[in-house]
Design a binder for these strands. Structure first.
Lengths: 124, 124
DNA sequence: TACTAGCTATTACGTTTTTAATAGTTAATA
DNA sequence: TATTAACTATTAAAAACGTAATAGCTAGTA
């Protein structure tokens, strides 16, 4: 079975993926919701117990590093969305993804390039 | 806050979205995992309590209809994946989505068309 | 009408998740 | 050295999830 992070676990992993690493304090500061410091601490220990993060001692604090990478957690989540919501249709998913007003033409172009590359590979 | 279905709730909603509607029996038959009939029943009642489905009496059975539509639940889930895993980068997400070996050239072409349309809109 | 198959309603319970208070520890510092 | 600020460790416990047994109801049918 694919890796399955809980809601809150994902919030915390996301911070570590973004920062590369973080102390409890750093993670706590980044989390949007108003959690207690000790809650974040517990969460990180839980994640460590599950093998998703590891820590090194840094002064008197622990510095946590992601072990599970976003890709590994991501593919499961994305596949699930693709399967359950968009019934396996990547087109539907992409349609929805690009329907957003905020997508810039530049981003669209880069994505098209990406597609062209991929198509080139297949046709050669 | 966006709609947030639990894992199992999503499984069940996915069936209803696909079939359009379903009795407990029908949903139960479609769910892959080996659940007790009463579990599915409970789940549907829970979903009804949360307003995600409604039912009509059909003979002696209930026929359930989705109230929450896949798009509504989907955007939340997709946005979350986009945000937390791919750090908001649609490119990264699309890259991953199309990296899959199983994607056919036809599908890629259709997606490219989709992109071209969208770009056309923006440029005009 | 009595029976029964097929449903729904009720109730419960183990597990996981989430949150957090508070106790203990340690490294710097007055 | 005594103090304290900044951490980690321990312990609880409420809430959410997931699962299912069993009781109760009802429409058809023998």
């Amino acid at each position: 079975m694919s890796i399955r992070l809980t809601h809150r676990e994902l919030d915390i992993m996301a911070v570590l993926w973004r920062l590369g690493s973080g102390t409890v304090n750093e993670v706590w500061a980044e989390i949007e919701d108003d959690l207690a410091y000790s809650t974040v601490l517990t969460m990180l220990r839980t994640l460590e117990g599950k093998g998703h993060v590891r820590h090194e001692v840094q002064g008197k604090a622990f510095r946590y590093y992601p072990v599970t990478q976003s890709e590994d957690a991501g593919s499961g989540a994305l596949d699930r969305v693709l399967d359950k919501i968009y019934q396996g249709s990547r087109e539907l998913l992409v349609t929805r993804l690009l329907a957003d007003e905020e997508v810039s033409p530049e981003e669209l172009r880069r994505i098209r390039e990406l597609l062209d590359e991929r198509l080139g590979e297949l046709e050669s």
